[in-house]
Amino acid sequence: MRRLLNTLYVTMPDAYLACDGENVLIRVKEEIKFRVPVHNLEGIVCFGFAGASPKLMYLCCERGVALSFLTEYGKFRGRVTGNISGNVLLRRTQYRWSDDCEAATRLSRRFIAAKIINSRALLHRVMRDHGDVVERTSLERTIKLMAGMVERLQKAADGDAIRGIEGEAAHYYFSNFNQLILSQKEAFCMVNRNRRPPTDRINALLSFLYTLLAHEVVAALESVGLDPQVGFLHRDRPGRPSLALDVMEELRPHFADRLAVTLINRKQISADGFVVKENGAVIMKDEIRKEVLIAWQKRKQEEITHPYLEEKIPLGLVPYVQALLLARHLRGDLEDYPPFFWK
C-alpha cells in the first residue's frame, strides 16, 4: 500500500518557491521561511503565489510531486506534473469505455449511488445523534426519498437520466443541510447550493473543501495511470478533470461536507473569518483558510477501515485506493468497480 505523504499548502501571497538540492524552499523577500525534503511531499498547492523557479518545477516533475496553482480564493489556475505514468493500454481502455454508453452508464450509476448513500448516511447520523433538536419529519422524508433514488438509478438508461437523479438527490440533500448545523446557525445558513461565486459562508467553505478534494483525486488518478480529463458521467470539456469529478462524487459527503459541518459546530471557524464583496461573493480570510487547511491535513491522517479492502488505512489514502480499484476494474482484474461507502 502506498505511504501517505504530505501536501504542502502555500498561502502567503508573496511566497516564492525554490529548491536547494532535494529540499523545497519557501522564500519571502529572500528570507527562507520554510524548508522540507521533497521526498516527504506528494503535492504542493499554492494559493496566490509570487512565483516558482524552473528548477523547483523540474524537481517536482522528476519526483512525482504534483504542483498546483490556485488563486488566493481557491480557483484552479494550472498544474505542473511529470511524465504520464501507467500503461498506455489502460488509458486506451478508459477512452473506449468513456465512449461506450453501456460501460459509462454502469460506472456512472456506481459513482452516484455511492454519493446518495453517503449523503443519506450524513443526514441519518445527525437525526440519530441529535434527534431532539432537528426536524425529524423532514429528515425522515428526505432519507426515504433518497433511498428510492438509489433504486431508480439501477434503471437509468443513460448519463442524462443519471444526472437528473443526481440533481434531484442534491436538491433534497442541500435543502436539509441547515439541519446539520447545530451552532452558529444564523451565520452559516444555506439557502441553496451555489458557486462561481459562492454567495454565503457555508457555500464558500464547501467550495474551498471541494477544491482541495479535487487536487487529491486528480493526483491519485494520475498516480495509477488514468487520465483525469476523461470521465464517464461528467461530459468532456477543455480543462475539466471529468474523471476526477466522477470519483469525487462518492467522496464529497465524508471528506468535505462532514468536515465543514464539524468546523462550524465546534466553532473552529466563525462568521468574521469571511468577507462579502461588492458583487455579493463571499470569500474566506487568510486566517480561516489556514485553519481549514490544518483541519484538512489532520483529517487525512485519521484511520478508517476501508469497506472493500477491509483494512485500516489513513483517510487521505482513500482517493488513491479508489483510483487503484477503478484502474483494476478497467484492466479486467475486478469484475466491477467497488465505490467508497461510508459506514
Rank of each mutant, 00 (worst) to 15 (best):
L309T: 04
L107N: 00
V28N: 10
R136Q: 11
K115H: 04
A256N: 09
L122V: 13
D129K: 00
G159H: 05
T262A: 13
C46E: 14
D227C: 04
L182F: 09
K75M: 07
D336F: 10
M57A: 15
E249D: 09
L251H: 10
V191D: 15
L233I: 08
I116T: 00
N203V: 01
L226G: 04
G239S: 09
N118S: 06
A114G: 05
R77K: 15
I181M: 09
R3Q: 11
Q94N: 09
L315Q: 09
E42S: 15
L243H: 04
F341W: 01
C60F: 02
R195V: 01
E72Q: 13
V126E: 11
E42L: 08
L325D: 11
G78K: 07
L233A: 04
V282S: 08
V261N: 04
Y173D: 00
F208T: 05
S108D: 07
R27M: 15
A244T: 07
N83W: 11
G74A: 05
Q229H: 13
A50Y: 14
P198Y: 02
R266V: 01
V218E: 06
V275D: 14
G131H: 04
I181R: 07
H254W: 08
R299D: 11
E31M: 12
V218H: 02
D336Q: 09
L8D: 12
L122E: 03
G316S: 03
E166T: 02
V224T: 00
S68N: 08
